[in-house]
């Protein structure tokens, strides 16, 4: 009798269709966190995990769960989990970015003329610690500190991971530190606010030995900032001997040139597209 019952049970088991395993992944998975995929049915076979930065293959033994270490899902995006024995079953799941932990901060330009409206832009991209863009809303705190003591700040929420602002450059030439902060992370960039075009370019002359020395007054822009040393000032002298030109760089705030003069001479000055005054001088002394 026992043999008959055993035979009947075995026949029944053989006659029943094999039930395929099913995979179930959690709904909410953050990048870099350990989790498990639940297996309903036979979990014996080969397990595949395909994701944005992952292509893993491993054998799994019977069990109700397949554990996935956080290191396998550091990149946010869609993943495919596949389990193959006689046939393959699969599930998809989405890994979202972890908490905002760092920033990419793009600040342009690195040099800007003073008093220029909306000349500076700062774009902050919120990232988690695995460099995934954090698409959920985060608050980015922008702040500006000039080395002349002035400062300002502005909070801006991210939109799809990006927050940005525009700034007008200060009236005084200085370095401005532009910072963006999210959570405990702060990124800082430096923008040099430099003098604008020369304004009221003015020259004067005096004699030294037999040469006429022509020099500018301290060269400043219209806001009173010193035009940086190295800026070229072009002197042009016309007299009986012909025309003489010197492209002299500003050094210590002024530009200077020595010129021989024959008879009466006319001297003019320019810096870039800015013209200065003209001088008429008599012959050599």
């Amino acid at each position: 009798m026992r043999t008959v019952i055993t035979w009947l049970l075995c026949s029944l088991a053989a006659a029943m269709p094999a039930t395929a395993a099913e995979l179930h992944a959690p709904k909410d998975i953050a990048a870099g966190t350990d989790f498990s995929i639940t297996v309903n049915g036979d979990s014996h076979g080969t397990f595949y995990l395909i994701g944005p930065a992952t292509a893993e293959k491993r054998s799994v033994e019977n069990g109700s769960e397949i554990s996935i270490p956080g290191t396998d899902i550091e990149k946010a995006g869609n993943y495919q989990a596949i389990l193959c024995s006689d046939e393959c079953v699969s599930t998809e799941f989405y890994v979202h970015a972890a908490e905002a932990d760092r920033l990419s901060l793009l600040v342009h330009p690195s040099r800007v003329p003073v008093a220029t409206t909306n000349a500076i832009s700062a774009v902050a991209i919120a990232l988690d610690r695995f460099h995934n863009i954090v698409f959920s809303h985060a608050q980015v705190d922008f702040s500006v500190n000039s080395n002349n003591g002035s400062s300002a700040s502005h909070a801006q929420p991210t939109n799809r991971g990006i927050a940005w602002i525009r700034l007008t450059s200060a009236a005084k030439a200085s370095s401005a530190k532009i910072s963006a902060a999210v959570g405990d992370t702060t990124e800082t960039r430096v923008v040099e606010q430099v003098a604008s075009e020369a304004c009221n370019l003015h020259i004067k002359s005096y004699w030294e030995a037999n040469h006429l020395v022509v020099q500018t007054d301290p060269v400043r822009d219209c806001s009173g900032n010193n035009v940086p040393d190295g800026t070229v000032v072009s002197f042009t002298k016309t007299d009986r001997s012909g025309k003489t030109t010197v492209d002299a760089p500003i050094k210590k705030g002024i530009a200077k040139a020595e010129m021989p003069v024959v008879g009466n001479a006319r001297i003019s000055v320019a810096s870039g597209v800015v013209l200065g005054n003209e001088l008429n001088v008599g012959g050599a002394r």
Binding site: S241, G242, T244, T245, D247
Partner: peptide
């Protein structure tokens, strides 16, 4: 470098 400065004289 901002140097050398070269003067161009007697242009004709």
């Amino acid at each position: 470098s901002a140097d050398p400065v070269i003067e161009v004289t007697g242009q004709k």
